[in-house]
Design a binder for these strands. Structure first.
Lengths: 246, 246
DNA sequence: CCCCGTCTTTGCGCCAGCGCAAACAAGACG
DNA sequence: CGTCTTGTTTGCGCTGGCGCAAAGACGGGG
């Protein structure tokens, strides 16, 4: 359908939420002040706790933002792709990155150093406004997930995570929507605050019900509405329903 | 110790993170454009989902920010007090408040309407910078709590919640530090993603160990370091320790 | 084309935490 | 000063989800 999915960087740039509303000249100036950064799959863009030196904008690839607990337990905060900004929060107040950014696939990013950015923000107000918008969007989303984690059970959270991924990186394929990134059971567990075993069991169950198909680090959602029903804790009709929460 | 805790609004204003760095004149102008708003204990400042019309700065009292799940399950995101801004995120991008703000005690706030605020932001750059700083601080904190909720067990999370509250609203009293707000078991449960029963059991245990004293909606922490040890999952010495996570 | 590393599945036992129910405590209020 | 409301404690039984262990399955690299 969309044949321009992998268009020129410039094209992507104008569409990036961070840069939206900038005039062509402004865009050019802003772009001129950026450095290009490449990270191979498996590589790390920056680590949690490092001094926050730059703001990034993704052009290609996929990056995973994680936090790790003292005991090594890892949590995935989000995946970012082309057009998304990374470390938008790091440029104000916080001296250190609060997350680790690791490339899931070979990635190309634009980088603006802290100082350069301050200057750009002054000259181009829309930039600051966009950054705030992004921050607030992020905050809203994390709060929502926090609430989910606090109040919902595992199956619901996994359903929601899958639905978000479908929206974010879903690609229509025959028979359903493919979540277009390498997504292991472990990844899903770290997204939803559970274990890979539980994720595996839940997905097996859903596969048996024809809700999705999954393989090695791959998920194709066949009946999104069924996931919605699970996420919202509605009685799924044919299956055993749960009354209340107890 | 600090006899000016309940000083004049003006004094508080200059200290508010949101207004820091503003010149005296700027401060005056900003203050002049604000409306005063009062909410009685138990009243509601705004509700989740309502169109976000204003940014608030607390002068007196205490407000609780909550989200509620579809099934009525409630989650407390944070408590805010004098000097704190409320709904800092609502003014950009988001049309609706993502949380409900309810007064825990009689509260007085300054309010700036959306439109006024846009204008103020333009005229007073530090204001925008401060707002971003606040947003990023908030984001960082929620992310941290998200990770905790995903990886830590209940006792750890309760310990952390208490430590945060001690830092935020702790008041030295004889024999320990009083958490200076009405804090029921239910509240603690909603802060940490558990149930009031479990909170009660955990607090009873800790009371037995002399770590704290608690009464009706009241907690006095006697040995904060013990809570730290629990939060960090260190062996508490005399008590049974847990190896790993299993 | 086969081997090896990685990912996945599933049986099994276990326990942290849940949530009802019921008794109890402490302020609030007339 | 007694009653009422609201919060707290605790026994009890239950189960969702954990995590080990071991057996598949997939697929990339040599």
């Amino acid at each position: 359908m969309k044949s321009l999915e992998k268009a020129q960087p410039v094209r992507t740039l104008a569409k990036a939420p961070l840069l939206r509303g900038l005039s062509a000249e402004a865009l050019e100036e802003v772009a001129a002040k950026a450095t290009e950064k490449k990270v191979r799959a498996g590589g790390t863009l920056f680590r949690e706790g490092e001094p926050a030196s730059a703001l990034y904008l993704m052009l290609e690839g996929r990056v995973k933002l994680t936090q790790v607990a003292a005991d090594g337990h890892e949590v995935i905060l989000r995946f970012v792709g082309p057009g998304d900004a990374v470390a938008a929060l790091a440029l104000f107040g916080d001296a250190a990155y609060p997350v680790t950014a690791g490339a899931v696939s070979d990635s190309v990013l634009m980088a603006w150093h802290r100082d350069v950015l301050q200057e750009l923000f002054q000259h181009h107000p829309p930039l600051a406004v966009n950054a705030m918008r992004l921050l607030s969007e992020r905050l809203r989303e994390v709060q929502e997930r926090f609430r989910e984690l606090a109040t919902e059970r595992v199956a619901q959270r996994i359903a929601r995570a899958l639905l978000r991924l479908v929206r974010q990186v879903g690609r229509r394929v025959e028979g359903g929507v493919l979540i277009d990134l390498t997504l292991s059971r472990q990844d899903l567990a770290e997204l939803t605050g559970t274990t890979l075993y539980t994720v595996s069991r839940v997905l097996s169950e859903w596969e048996g019900q024809g809700i999705l198909e999954s393989g090695r680090a791959k998920v194709v959602v066949k009946r999104p509405h069924a996931l919605v029903a699970i996420a919202e804790d509605l009685a799924p009709g044919t299956e055993g329903r749960v009354e209340g929460r107890g």
